[in-house]
Design a protein around this nucleic acid. Structure first.
Length: 255
DNA sequence: ATGGCCAATCCTATTGGA
């Protein structure tokens, strides 16, 4: 079973990219973030024609998440029940016996801002909720855009970024607190190329110069992690015309 | 030089992203 996550930065613009990518990479589950579509505009037919069922929740302009799956998705939950929120950032569903949680963590804008506080509150509540979910689902996977680079090696220029949003110590603490529930970063289960990133700024030839951050992650519960046989970042769609600024992260499971 | 690029919006400027 292959599971993947991709922040598409508008599914309206990126639907052709998603369909092409699924043709090249027929994963079993694909989690999307920043669909930026209200539910009535979600391309259920097009994605269905590609062989995928969907669970999604969206809103206008901002946020929006979706789970695409070849097999049936059941027990769909939208948003964190412990955190009433108008922003549509979470969708969860069960595929086979794996509980999939697709999350678009708030960006935080700037350290000390209101949005930064919201991000930390949001993460605290997510952690609390997933600690409960973990009791119900031994096989739990949290995929998405975390908007956190967990370590300095996940940042192209750690000195320039020190203390900045996406790398600040409280955000990294929040990432660790999430892992402390019972999660392992699938990407770090394996030896990886140096300077591996999942996002690059559109400006200043960021991708060409590999000035990026690794902020998209797949966390696997400790019962699930031993079944992971590979985890990779696919940089190819970042080279396509009119790309998303993020690329997909893929984990392969032997179940 | 605090911007550069991109997407969306009551849209030819502004906001948010990261």
């Amino acid at each position: 079973m292959k599971i993947a996550t991709w922040n598409v930065n508008s599914l309206k613009v990126r639907l052709p990219h998603v369909l092409q990518w699924l043709e090249d990479n027929p994963v079993d589950v694909l989690c999307l973030q920043e669909t930026k579509l209200t539910d009535d505009k979600f391309p259920v037919m097009e994605i269905g024609a590609a062989g995928y069922q969907v669970a999604f929740t969206g809103q206008k302009t901002y946020n929006g998440v979706a789970i695409l799956s070849k097999k049936p998705v059941t027990d769909i939950v939208k948003n964190n029940p412990l955190f009433p929120d108008e922003q549509q950032r979470i969708v969860a569903a069960t595929v086979d016996n794996i509980r999939i949680v697709c999350a678009y963590v708030p960006n935080g804008q700037a350290v000390g801002s209101e949005k930064y506080s919201y991000k930390l509150d949001w993460l605290r509540s997510l952690t609390q909720w997933l600690a409960e979910e973990r009791q119900k689902h031994p096989y739990l996977a949290l995929l998405g855009d975390y908007n956190i680079a967990p370590e300095d090696r996940d940042v192209y220029d750690p000195v320039a970024w020190e203390g900045n949003v996406l790398v600040s110590p409280p955000e990294r603490d929040a990432f660790r607190a999430l892992q402390d529930i019972d999660f392992i970063d699938a990407y770090r289960l394996f030896e990886q190329p140096e300077k591996s990133y999942s996002w690059w700024d559109y400006r200043q030839l960021g991708f060409q110069k590999n000035r990026g951050l690794r902020i998209d992650h797949i966390l696997l519960s400790k019962a699930l992690a031993p079944h992971c046989t590979a985890c990779t970042i696919d940089r190819i769609p970042r080279k396509w015309t009119q790309p998303s600024d993020h690329t997909p992260v893929i984990a392969e499971l032997d179940i």
